[in-house]
Write a protein that binds this DNA or RNA. Structure first.
Length: 155
DNA sequence: GCCAACGTTGGC
DNA sequence: GCCAACGTTGGC
């Protein structure tokens, strides 16, 4: 079973929003590499680290899981949507996504700062690689274990 | 196919 | 709000 990290701006959609709605279609990803992870590599049941970006304290704030197989992101066909993509052919859609289901919220944010401070234990981590802006990225089993251990320490 | 211009992400 | 580090677009 693989694990992933998925970023969301809490002002747009936070871990508390996910807790409330239980399950959410991960619409709006418009980066090919991030799409490929969802479309080609995610499996139902995979662990998701839910990450808050563009906020006071960026970091991992909880856990979710992949709750659906990949399917076409409906927002790409909706001219009213911020994520509308007029170049996407409905018969051969450009953007796929998965649903994410709430698992649990961390008591405290495991901050980006803490993750960077533990760069040694985390090894080569896509999140902290120089210049990385991917909103969906892979997490190794070792990295997941390290992060869950760090969560206990910061409780 | 090159590459300048432009748009976006996201930490700070 | 700034800006580095990207990714994308489109003229040629």
């Amino acid at each position: 079973m693989a694990s992933w990290l998925m970023k969301s701006e809490p002002e747009e959609f936070s871990i508390d929003d996910l807790k409330r709605v239980k399950r959410e279609p991960w619409t709006g990803v418009r980066n090919y590499q991030a799409r490929n992870f969802m479309r080609d590599d995610m499996k139902v049941g995979d662990t998701v680290l839910f990450y808050h970006s563009n906020c006071d304290e960026p970091g991992v704030v909880g856990l979710a899981r992949v709750a659906s197989k990949p399917y076409d992101d409906p927002t790409q066909f909706n001219p009213e949507s911020h994520y509308y993509d007029p170049k996407s052919d409905p018969d051969n859609a450009r953007w796929q996504m998965v649903d994410i289901a709430y698992k649990r919220r961390f008591k405290r944010t495991l901050s980006l700062q803490t993750l960077k401070a533990n760069a040694g234990a985390l090894g080569d981590f896509a999140l902290t690689r120089r210049g990385n802006r991917l909103s969906v990225l892979p997490v190794s089993a070792e990295q997941l274990a390290t992060i869950l251990e760090l969560e206990k320490q910061t409780d």
